[in-house]
Amino acid sequence: MKKYVQIKGTKDGISIFLSDTASLVELEEGLLQHLKEQQKIVSQDQKLAVQVHIGNRLFTEAEEHSIKSIIQENSVMEVSGFTSNVMSKQDAKKWKEEEQIFSLATIVRSGQIINVPGDLLLVGDVNPGGAIRATGNIFILGNVKGIIHAGFEGDIKAVVTGKFQYPSQIRIADQIHGFDDESSKERIEENILTAYIDDKSELKIDSLHILRKIRPEISNFQGGQ
């Protein structure tokens, strides 16, 4: 049964590797046997964090609980987590939403609120009283006069681009920059600007050109001269 279980020390600490071809019963029996042998050489006053790798499979909550209980009741190791080479449908759906860019060609009118998981590209204007929220970046090819909230679940790496006009308000995570004061009433912005959070956790407004410097991962085009 031991062939289904390997305990190794890595640069990140102790890891337990469980075969993804064995049944749960075979894993439980092999793990129990292996841990009983380990008890003879490991001092009981130690408390060791361990990561459990389960390969190309997924465990249910009950299966994770069973494996975790065997490890923690029969050794001085404490399970810090399970890692797998595959993901659940729910995790895959969330990953897909976060990675894709939603695109819209419309005018966001007063009273409209658009919520998007991931990034959003809007070709059009945002009127006063309109609002856009996205978990990722928001790119607007048009005039911005409403409320734009990028990274609204806390992503401080998110950015907003657009022609920011009065009375717009730009938000990234929990930081806010407004163009809604008296000095902004006569503001006419002809250039697309970039809003981002700098390394001092302050929301900054700069030219579009800064985007390539602060978030190089956004542009991955490799062609051209």
Rank of each mutant, 00 (worst) to 15 (best):
G81H: 11
N127T: 12
I67A: 05
F82I: 12
K93G: 03
I107A: 04
R57P: 13
I132R: 05
E73Q: 15
T83F: 07
N74R: 02
R133W: 03
V123L: 02
G81P: 11
A134K: 10
K40S: 09
F139A: 03
Q72I: 04
L31Q: 06
E28T: 04
L24H: 09
F82T: 01
K157Q: 07
M77V: 00
T60Q: 09
S69C: 02
L35M: 09
A62C: 05
V126E: 01
D119C: 02
Q112N: 15
V159P: 03
A158M: 11
H149V: 06
S110N: 14
F59W: 03
V52A: 10
K68A: 01
V123A: 00
E61Q: 13
K94G: 01
G146T: 13
I140D: 06
I132L: 10
V126C: 05
V108I: 15
L121R: 09
D20H: 12
N115E: 14
Q46H: 04
K40V: 11
G111I: 07
E73F: 13
D45H: 14
I114L: 12
V123T: 02
I113C: 03
D119G: 00
L58H: 03
L120D: 01
N74M: 00
T106M: 15
G154P: 08
F139Q: 05
E28S: 14
H53Q: 04
A105W: 00
S75Y: 06
V123I: 14
G30A: 05
N137C: 12
H53R: 11
T106R: 15
V123M: 03
Q100H: 13
Q72G: 03
A158S: 14
Q100Y: 08
A49S: 15
V123G: 01
G124P: 11
A134Q: 01
G136N: 06
G130K: 08
D45V: 08
A105D: 04
A62W: 01
Q112L: 09
G142A: 13
H53K: 11
I156W: 00
G154L: 09
E26G: 11
Q46S: 12
V79G: 06
A150S: 12
H53V: 10
I132Q: 05
L104S: 02
G154S: 08
A92G: 13
G30P: 12
H149R: 11
W95R: 15
R57G: 10
I148P: 02
K96V: 15
R57S: 12
L58V: 04
V76Q: 10
T21L: 01
W95G: 06
D119Q: 00
P128A: 02
Q46R: 07
I156R: 08
Q33K: 03
S80T: 13
D125C: 09
P128Y: 00
